[in-house]
Design a protein around this nucleic acid. Structure first.
Lengths: 117, 117
DNA sequence: TTACTATACATTGTAAAGCTATGTATTTTA
DNA sequence: TAAAATACATAGCTTTACAATGTATAGTAA
């Protein structure tokens, strides 16, 4: 994605699922632009990350695709299946819980004291 | 680390630096137990992750080590160097900013609309 | 008209990071 | 006395995103 790219690992699938659950239908390039817009350029999804991720979601049955021609150019729209909708909800919930856990871990002031207390 | 293990990528170094900056001095096994305690078992740092990460911090000059014998058993204490203290602060700040960005990305309700607006 | 940029898809090979499995050894607890 | 906890460590695997590359159409500015 972008500079602090190692932090992103494991979140891309969730991000895609979430955007699809909100917008209903999106195509790849649109996802890259929307993520860029929402994060004010702080997260940049690259093609080398996005398309394999989308193909995996499709292989896992979480999305279906539909090709639309814009003039002579193909657009491949992705839509969540019902399992995909369930996965989106679960995935977002899990990621939020994880963010909370890590936030707590790196801000906890009176640290628990293994070995003492 | 634990079940949702893919989410952790890139955060372990920051977690270690943060704990060391709080506790002053820690040894490997102690770190695994403290993380487990603080996160209520939700994050489990494995040896195969921890020790290579500690060795890398040492190789990068961010920590120094000190071996202490407890009976016949060795304990290797890690302490932040000055560059390590600086890195800890910067690393925590960056991770917090990242957490905020991702949180916003997966909770933003009125999604920005690339192509519209 | 001609570059350059944006749109739009895709794949191959690479690097980073944590995990599993394994190994060694001491100490404590059931 | 056996199992679990403490305490270190490494080799090889897997996952995941990225860089680089490729193809092609559409729009825009010189």
């Amino acid at each position: 994605m972008t500079n602090h790219s190692e932090l992103i690992k494991g979140t891309l699938g969730t991000i895609i699922l979430r955007l699809l659950s909100q917008k209903g239908r999106m195509y790849g390039y649109e996802i890259t632009q929307l993520v860029k817009e929402i994060t004010d350029g702080k997260v940049l999804v690259k093609e080398g990350s996005l398309y394999p991720a989308l193909h995996k979601l499709e292989a896992d049955g979480l999305v279906t695709t539909e090709e639309v021609f814009i003039g002579k150019r193909v657009r491949k729209y992705y839509t969540l299946t019902q399992p995909g909708k369930n996965a989106a909800q679960a995935s977002v919930d899990e990621l939020l819980a994880f963010l909370k856990t890590i936030h707590n871990l790196i801000t906890a002031q009176p640290l628990a004291s293994y070995g003492a207390a």
